[in-house]
């Protein structure tokens, strides 16, 4: 026997004696290392706790916003489709349909830093450096007419920025305002003189059609295949309706960023109509990474074989491209989604 166990035992006893509070503990888990806490502890509070060193100006923020945020939030932070609007709405909070934005509603700028740094860009979170976040916030403040175009936001002046709706919130008062009113004995008879219907859901008619949920593959998908004009490079395999249907399901993993089909527009990623057979980095109006633009310039064409390689592991296939997607490890998933994409011509 070595002396080691005795040393270890001595250490344990010392620890227990030195920290009697630990005697009641389970002794499970292990101390977190400083580097681990730093890696995960990114939250920022209204008092500024958690703000990293750094700064960024409106002009830099405009460029960053355009590249990272505008696909959903609009070039002027005005919002695209159903995605959140980040600017505007000042003075509308008491209106019938208030516009709640960072400028009109958010009480603390720290919330914006915390959220952008930890949870954005959507589909590519935790990729912005602190200086980027300061710059994007400066641009969002500018878009809300809260700072001038020469403004630079930094850790040092962060707490000087007062948000317009900082005093617009009060702590839940249901206990005093609602509970007494709603805790009276319940009426059982003759509770009203008359009852009239005042609103009907059928007037708005916004309930989803339930049949859609149980329908198998819509016939229209199969019909659409012969109508599509496959480019010569497209494999014949893409006309298998079952494979296309299976690819439609796989595509749900892509659909947050990529649109396909009639009227598809660029989003976080480029729209994918006609992608099979097209040169890489070629959709008009989409801001590609330099890596993807170079791939296209160097002759990469999205034929099924190239797509298969790319979708197996996008990060190794085209290093430094900006698609943040782990890839489709199953060959059958890749074949299906390529067949599905092949069914949408330009």
């Amino acid at each position: 026997m070595s002396k080691f166990p005795k040393v270890a035992l001595g250490l344990v006893l010392t620890t227990v004696l030195a920290m009697p509070a630990f005697a009641e503990k389970m002794g499970l888990g292990r101390p977190a290392l400083a580097a681990e806490i730093d890696a995960w502890n990114h939250d920022v509070r209204p008092d500024g706790q958690g703000l990293p060193e750094g700064s960024g100006d409106v002009a830099t923020g405009e460029t960053l916003f355009s590249a990272n945020c505008a696909a959903c939030h609009g070039e002027f932070a005005e919002g695209v489709d159903n995605w959140p609007k980040l600017a505007g709405g000042a003075g509308t909070l008491a209106d019938q349909d208030p516009l709640k934005t960072v400028g009109s509603y958010w009480p603390y700028l720290s919330t914006t830093f915390d959220y952008v740094h930890r949870s954005m860009p959507y589909g590519n979170a935790q990729t912005l450096e602190p200086n980027d976040v300061y710059a994007i916030l400066a641009y969002i403040l500018y878009s809300n007419d809260l700072v001038g175009e020469d403004f630079t936001l930094s850790k040092e002046n962060f707490l000087d920025v007062k948000m317009p709706n900082a005093d617009g919130f009060f702590v839940d008062n249901r206990e005093t305002v609602e509970l007494p009113e709603f805790s009276k004995p319940a009426c059982m008879e003759n509770c009203k003189d008359k009852v009239e219907i005042t609103a009907y859901a059928s007037v708005l008619d916004v309930t989803p059609d339930e049949k859609k949920a149980t329908e198998p593959v819509p016939a229209v998908v199969a019909d659409a295949v012969p109508a599509a004009e496959p480019a010569p490079a497209v494999e014949v395999a893409s006309v298998d309706p079952a494979l296309i249907a299976s690819g439609e399901k796989v595509f749900k993993k892509c659909a947050a960023c990529h649109k396909v089909g009639e009227g598809a527009k660029n989003g976080v990623g480029p729209m994918l109509n006609g992608v099979v057979g097209r040169a890489a980095g070629a959709v008009e109006g989409y801001k590609y990474s330099a890596a993807m633009a170079d791939a296209g310039a160097n002759g990469t064409v999205w034929d099924p074989a190239t797509l298969d390689t790319y979708l197996t592991n996008p990060k190794t296939a085209i290093p430094k491209n900006k698609m943040s997607f782990a890839g489709l490890p199953k060959p059958e998933d890749r074949a299906a989604v390529i067949a599905y994409l092949g069914s949408f011509s330009q």
């Binding site: 909070l93 008491a94 209106d95 208030p98 709640k100 960072v102 509603y105 958010w106 009480p107 603390y108 919330t111 617009g168 919130f169 009060f170 702590v171 839940d172 008062n173 249901r174």
Partner: peptide, 16 residues
């Protein structure tokens, strides 16, 4: 703050 707060008729908002 931005979400899960309740806007009252006067534009103020309940939080928590």
């Amino acid at each position: 703050t931005s979400k899960y707060t309740d806007t009252m008729a006067d534009g103020s908002a309940r939080k928590w």
